[in-house]
């Protein structure tokens, strides 16, 4: 399974559209794409996961690394479009408490 990443620059920051599986095989590609964006000063990054059906623990680690990078650079990270299985993974690991996750257009308490 592959992972396709499209990044668009909008007026409210960057949006990365992911499609495929985020796992041990695609994690490096995701890291290399998202980390430089997260390291930019005071920028907002939204990651759209609508087309992602599976994330493994290595994939979760990439999001943690990106979160830490945005905190360092004064930027923000937001995830949108999580399916139930992916959402459950963020809930079990408690990461929904530290990462801004938008559910059905509504923001979850941070």
């Amino acid at each position: 399974m592959n992972l396709d990443i499209q990044v668009t620059e909008g007026e409210h920051g960057n949006v990365a559209y992911l499609s495929g599986e985020v796992d041990v095989y695609t994690a490096t590609k995701l890291k290399e794409t998202l980390n430089p964006i997260a390291e930019q000063k005071n920028s907002d990054l939204v990651v759209d996961l609508s087309e992602v059906n599976y994330i493994d623990s290595t994939g979760l680690g990439i999001f943690i690394g990106v979160l830490k990078a945005t905190e360092k650079s004064g930027s923000t990270l937001k995830l949108t479009g999580l399916n139930d299985r992916v959402k459950r993974l963020f809930e079990i690991t408690g990461l929904n408490e530290v990462i801004d996750i938008e559910v059905d257009g509504r923001k979850e308490a941070k």
Binding site: K31, S57, G61, I62, I64, G65, K68, A69, T93
Partner: peptide, 8 residues
Amino acid sequence: IESDMFIT
């Protein structure tokens, strides 16, 4: 630990 690693 590395920034993109964690333990449960």
